[in-house]
Design a binder for these strands. Structure first.
Lengths: 154, 154
DNA sequence: CAGGATCCAATACGATACTG
DNA sequence: CAGTATCGTATTGGATCCTG
């Protein structure tokens, strides 16, 4: 959008992610899809988004391979939008954003919805970042390694 | 932006998060801040963003409490932008987006930068979502519990 | 160099009307 | 109901010029 410096060919994976789903609606659509929303009208009602933008976003997510269209489960003439495995892989992203919002975007006591596990009904554990050996690490323990090597890096 | 339905008073923490940092540049600025970028000019060069937008985004992140301005480390008259604890708490979000990008936004063999731990130089472990007892759970094991109760919830 | 001010193109988004 | 088409407006974001 607004064709800025193209992020789509960036060497940073985060930039590529954002290039595809980094707008205001896509991740909210994905969140709804996680919650079981499948139909155009359900998305529209849930999000309060205009029809035109919703249609474009759904198209974009389908084109990206995050959602796929299947014949409607209720036998109607229309399509259902369901998450692909690529879409389901956004689960940690959703959880991370939600947990950050819970922790930093509400005043104390202000109510908000909660993501709980279905069996126990309890909140999830905070996401933690671990190294290859499973040890918990902090931001300061990491560094970005650039690979400019395009073919055989030996 | 484009004053759509305000997400800032949403009951969904994810919507609130996106309301603050859900644009195209904010998370990339935060990523750079994680990588040690502090100065206006460094951000601009690293991101290829125009000065006007960068200034506005930095202001927004400062207003949000994600960044803070400190007197420049090199003694110049200007300010450094550094992450607050609220900003540092975005670490799992950054990692989640990066890992998703690595896994799904590159063709096989296509090079990209890599986030490694400083000591061992190895890639991080994939983020996993766990329940309150530390057990790994999937998307399908969770459900959103809405709390509409605004004061005493019984 | 760090920003602010201004101008302009592209577009994101909402509202509405239209179609099958 | 599921979209598409059109229109108006607000905002983005780049480029340029200006200042301390």
């Amino acid at each position: 959008m607004v064709k800025r410096v193209s992020l789509s060919d960036a060497e940073c994976p985060m930039a590529r992610s954002l290039d595809g789903i980094g707008d205001w609606w896509s991740l909210l659509i994905v969140r709804d899809a996680f919650d079981g929303v499948r139909r155009f009208g359900e998305f529209q009602k849930s999000l309060g988004i205009s029809k035109g933008i919703l249609a474009r976003r759904l198209q974009g997510l389908v084109a990206l391979g995050v959602l796929t269209m299947t014949s409607a489960s209720d036998g109607s003439a229309w399509q259902d939008y369901v998450l692909t495995s690529k879409g389901e892989a956004l689960f940690p992203v959703i959880v991370a954003l939600r947990q950050w919002g819970e922790a930093f975007c509400y005043r104390p006591g202000e109510p908000h919805s909660e993501l709980v596990d279905r069996k126990k009904g309890k909140s999830l554990a905070p996401l933690v970042v671990r190294d290859a050996d499973g040890e918990i690490i902090q931001m300061r323990d990491t560094v970005v390694k650039k690979l400019a090597l395009s073919s055989k890096d030996y």
